[in-house]
Design a binder for these strands. Sequence first.
DNA 1: GATCGAGAAGGCAGAGAAGG
DNA 2: CCTTCTCTGCCTTCTCGATC
Length: 514
Amino acid sequence: MSPAKRARSSTATIKRSSSATPPPSSTPTADEDKPKPTLPASALKKLSLHASSRAAQTPFPHWQHPTPQEAQEVCDLLASVHGMPTRPNVLVDKEDAPAGCGQVPSVLDALVRTILSQNTTSKNSTAAKVQMDQIYGRANYRAVLVGGQAKLQETIRCGGLAGNKSKAIMGILDRLEARNVGELGLKPGEGELSLDYLHGKSDEEALNELISFDSVGIKTASCVLLFCLGRDSFAVDTHVHRLSLSLGWLPPNGSVYTLSSSDSSSPSKPTRQTSTAAPPSRDQAFYHLDHLLPSQLKYPLHSLLVRHGRGCVRCAANGVTTMDFVETCPIDHLVKRVKGKYKGGGGGAKGKKTEEAEEVPVKDEAGQTVGFAHAEGAEKIEFEPLPDAAEERVAELGARKGEAVKMEDEEGMPRDESAEEHVKPKKGRGRKVKAEPKEEDEGDAEPAAKRSRRSTTASTKSSAPTRARSTRLGFTSSKAAAATRLKAGKASGDRNEPEAAGQANGGTMHGLDV
DNA sequence: GATCGAGAAGGCAGAGAAGG
DNA sequence: CCTTCTCTGCCTTCTCGATC
């Protein structure tokens, strides 16, 4: 076989196999037989972690939710409002496809789009992708590779985290180039940089290949599998994660059951129990839900949960939707919204946190946690009446300001950002506040600089360093900066005109994968 | 009204702490 | 010492409450 034949066109439309598992090595590639080129330690660590998690099937073997019936019910209810998403058999390379949506035929393009969508809004990531296409040409990754990381970083700066993302993308392109040269026998600079060979690999092989790249985690890889490769993988993003918690599909405590790697062969017998207030992580949620959910529901459920998590005024984070909102929540009777989450907005209102509704774990005869319920007195959560129209919603949201104390939350995250949370001794593993002064609770007499980094940033997160950096770079708040620019009557200064890029982006605000 | 301060979204890697 | 787990930094934009 000519090595050149292996490099498929990245821009052509590619008909997908409808089967979740492609024919086993119908094109037995040399890279399957050869030992893999040495991967960096970080990649090996990721792969090892993934392998043990997969072997364990689910991190919560005693938590049998969602059942297929529960999943089907939620799917049907959400579809009644949002419509039932159907996966296209043929992906077409649309110019205005939003970043973050892996629904493009080229696997490499899908992966890059998904990377660009990490840690930023769809608007920003799409702007970055548009910028890339303008600078390098449409999905011209050879030009990207030739141009170097610095140029790429500058190009995608408007998307945020440009340093990390450009490094990640260049790493992928470097490896593909090395593959072209080392395994396909091409000359340097020849052939197309493509990941389309993943179409010929099994789900697990493709997933492993993807997560072996730097900056590509389970979620990113899962998105590519789900949307580009047409496989049944249940990607867990923030909306899916939040709603899964609210629906009781995940245990309230993320680390109740932990399998040691040596016991991964007997997943039904967790060897150790840890206890932490932290809810399941997104990765844990992925392994649990990907294991339990029926394959045919993964695509529609992911799409519906994302759409609903963004569009339902009752289920969106902080009650603020980022797209057309849903008047009535079809799963309102199924979700458990608990008090306690910070009501978004307004920095000045620091500390506006609502009272936490106490959760009591429900245990089976063996003492294993199999569910949770609100403590007495906390189970009655009164929902506010739904707005009747969009205008009313705006008014309602306005009226909610300042009523944070009464505002219930949909998330049910036991983790609190209060200082008390962080000075609490934890039973489980994990980093503690180093040498936390005992008198810390007492007062603020100690200069903030003397506090541990963790406790200091617990309340401010990364905002402070970010702001400090922004200030050094000449930013104030974006609003102020925008106003200043408006006054000055010129476009944004030496920045990369993110607003302009956003305008170029036009209406593609969301990479909604439906 | 202008400005400032601060939370939130978004996913990953890596540092560091603690248990076995 | 190894493994496991938690937490933070990374970056930008938007939003909103408080203050001037």
